[in-house]
Each structure stands twice: as C-alpha cells, then as structure tokens.
Design a protein around this nucleic acid. Structure first.
Lengths: 229, 229
DNA sequence: ACAAAAGTGTTTAATGTACACCCATGA
DNA sequence: TCATGGGTGTACATTAAACACTTTTGT
C-alpha cells in the first residue's frame, strides 16, 4: 500500500446518470440542458456531486429522484471517468450510472424545470465533456445486461403485450427479431404470467397482457436456472 | 445538474488492484501485508491514492509497477466502492482494478519488500475493508471477460502448450473441460500459431508450443468475428 | 369485404457434448 | 516394457434460425 497522500490530491466526485426509457418504439435517454457555466446551454447527462453523508449508489438515487420524481429504480454503476481535465473548472472524477425507468411514470413538471428532454439514442445531440463515451458504454452494458438478466421489464408498464416486449428488446439490441422465435424463447423461459386481460389499444383483435413473475424467476434462478435471451 | 457542493464533500480517491496470476495449476492473487494502521498486519489488496497528475488508469499502472516491476499489463477498471465508513480513518472512495500478469515475470525482490505473497483464490486469507467483495467481483468479471475476449494469454508465457492453455481456462472458470472439445474449439477459432518447437518439460513425448496470433485475431475481429470460448 | 395486428409449429442448420484409443518417449 | 502425458474424430443431443398462414374485429 502506497499510503502517502497530499490533501491536494483529494478530488471532487461527481455522479452522472444515463437514464433510459422506452416509448413503445425507440430506446431513449433523458438529457438536461445546462443552465450554468461551463458549457452553459449544452446538453448533458443529469449529474451531481457525492456528499459526505451518502455512498455512490445513494447519490445516484438522489439525483434520479430529483429529476424524475421516481424512487426504487433499477440503477447500475457503469464506470468511473477521471481524465485530468475532463471538467475544465476543477479536478473531478465522475462515476457513471445507468437507470431504467418506465417512461410513463416520470414527473413531467420536474423535467421541465430542469429543461430536460427525451431523445432517441439514434439522434441524441452532442454532449459535454466525456458524456458521450458514457452513453456509448451504457448502451453496450445495457445490451449485455438485458440479455442475461430479466431487467428489461423495468422499461415497460407492469402489464405489457408480447409485441411490446419484443419491440423493447429490438430497440435495445438494435436489430429486428423473429416474432415466432421470440415468443417461443420467452415462453420457454417460463417467467411470465399471462393475464386474462387484453390490451385493445394496438389492434382490433386485442392482444393478451402479461406480467413478469418475479417470484417465479427468483425461485428458478436460485435453482440454477439462468435467463438468456 | 445539481452543481452546488461543499469543499468538505471532496473525498480521497484510492485505487486497489486485484492482481491475477496463474502458476500452471491454480489461479492466484497477489496480496500485501499491511505494515501500517489501521488493520496493520492484515492482508489486503495492493493500493494507493490517485494523484492530481494522473487519471485512474495511470494510477493503477503506477501501483502495479511499484509492486511487480512490470509495465504494459492488462488492466481493467472493475467497480468503485464508496461505503461511507469503508475506511475507518477517512472518507475514501476506492476504484478497484484487476490485472492479469505472467506470474513468472514479476520482480520477486519487490514483492518481498512489500511483504506481498501469492495465494490461490481458493484459499486466500481474509482481507481488510471491502477487499473481499472486490476480489469476488473481479473473479466474476474475469470469467466473463476471458470467455468473450482473448485476454487469458496474458497469464501465460508467450509460448504455451494446449494443455497449459486448457488448465488456465479451467482454473479461471473453476471447472474441468474436455480435452478434445477444448482443442477443437480453440482450433476452430483459428487465432493461434502452432510452432515447430516442442515443450519437453511436461512429458517425454513433448508437446507442441503455440503462440497467440494477435494480428490475425485483430483482423478477424475487425471483420465481425467474435471470440467465444 | 378488407385492412391490420395477433397468434401459432415445423423443418433445417449449427453448435455443443460425450466419449476411447493409439503414439512417442524416457526411465 | 511400461508408465506418462500427447494427440486425434465421430455420433448424438440440444439449441438456434428460417419460414407462412389463419384468426379476429372494427371500419
């Protein structure tokens, strides 16, 4: 252990959040317009500084709550960014987190206050500092995570149709999937509960609604089953 | 962006390294015995503090160089740990890195100076703070990484036998692999170069030596090929 | 009656897994 | 000559991928 340090080696610790949502068609991220220098007026990830009284996960939760009004969100630490002059004003190390939220649930008033806006990942604006690197890495982690662990449901309403589920995966993976193969795969996993209810919005015939049976999944996972899309 | 902060919110940033080696039989980690308080005399990961003049990757390289004398090592950032009282003396956030080194190449004098020692991952001693969590996560990341990208070679000498390669993967994955299936898989990847040379240490017959053909791998990877063990 | 989305299985290809014998050599 | 590790191929099982028609119902 090399344990000598200068107190001038202390750094500011920031947390930046890549917030993902899904609007039935495309994968989106929530960005805020900076109303302060540097880079005032530019788009950036929602961020904040770590406080003495909280750990990084808690800071990320707090930041997310402030912007969206939502609590108990899927949040995962992504990577820490430390280029010396990444923030031109002060030495700052930023820990990036990504979050999955149900896009319908966020507080629209709040995001207006922050001049925040949802963008399709395919046509998001340029971002300050190293935020674009963060988004890129977040998407790649999201692809991996959603295909090995059933967290995609966080992006959907509690009750969803097979078609919504498929479109959500297509949006994340960036490729079309075969309808029949997809349904067969999902059904073989045996972690959804089919409801009696139908969604009548999307078609005349109506399509059955499903929910993710988390209890069942947990039982199976504890038993060695592994989710693999 | 929540951009107000107290300068008392600044934190010390530490870097801790999980250093992996392979001794032809088992996966090992290099641990140091602390010669200072707190937890003096206990085993811990090799660590140090981030300096103003370097980024996190550079800090990890520096720390690794100090302990092993080796440069140009495979290093990957793992995760940041920030529990408020993880270090009982001062608020410290630690960024964990893991490294893969050829165990033959490290400087044995240096590690003696640090009272460092190699331990099998299966019978390593208890560690200070949250270092055991770090090791656990590092092993899991290592398993994933080595089976999706050809970095396992970092643990082996430049020239190695098929058997060494297999044992290395077995040690990492924690399971026995079938000899013929393993060789077939590796050969089908077509990223090794078979040498004319034989290793005569391990048997009377001798076994052919191979090297990892990085150029070939890169060409194939650029062309859409993906390594999958 | 027709447009629009829902629902439903089978065939084929690719990949993974299990498995056993001969070879070369030094002691 | 025998003990030790090196080297090799095939059959079977599982998983992935391609593919098209019928149903329902509101307009």
């Amino acid at each position: 252990m090399i344990h000598n340090y200068d107190s001038e080696d202390k750094a500011l610790l920031a947390v930046d959040c890549i917030i993902f949502g899904f609007d039935q068609e495309e994968l989106k991220i929530l960005l805020v317009k900076r109303d302060f220098e540097p880079e005032k007026g530019m788009w950036s990830l929602m961020g904040g500084f770590l406080k003495r009284s909280e750990n990084l996960d808690e800071a990320a939760e707090r930041i997310l709550l402030h912007l969206t009004g939502i609590n108990n969100v899927y949040l995962e630490q992504l990577h820490s960014y430390s280029k010396i002059d990444r923030d031109p004003v002060e030495r700052t190390v930023s820990v990036a987190y990504f979050a999955l939220i149900n896009i319908e649930e966020h507080n629209k008033e709040l995001i207006k206050q922050y001049s925040a806006q949802w963008f399709n990942i395919s046509n998001a604006p340029g971002l300050i500092f190293d935020h674009e690197m963060m988004v890129k890495k977040a998407i790649s982690r999201l692809r991996y995570r959603t295909s090995t662990v059933p967290i995609g449901f966080e992006l959907l309403p509690q009750k969803f149709t097979m078609r919504q589920l498929q479109k959500m995966y297509e949006a994340i993976l960036g490729e079309k999937l075969d309808k029949r193969n997809f349904i067969n795969k999902i059904n073989s996993l045996d972690i959804l509960r089919k409801l009696d209810e139908k969604d009548m919005e999307s078609s005349k015939k109506g399509s059955f609604l499903y929910t993710f049976d988390e209890q069942k999944y947990k039982r199976k996972a504890a038993d060695g089953f592994s989710f693999k899309l």
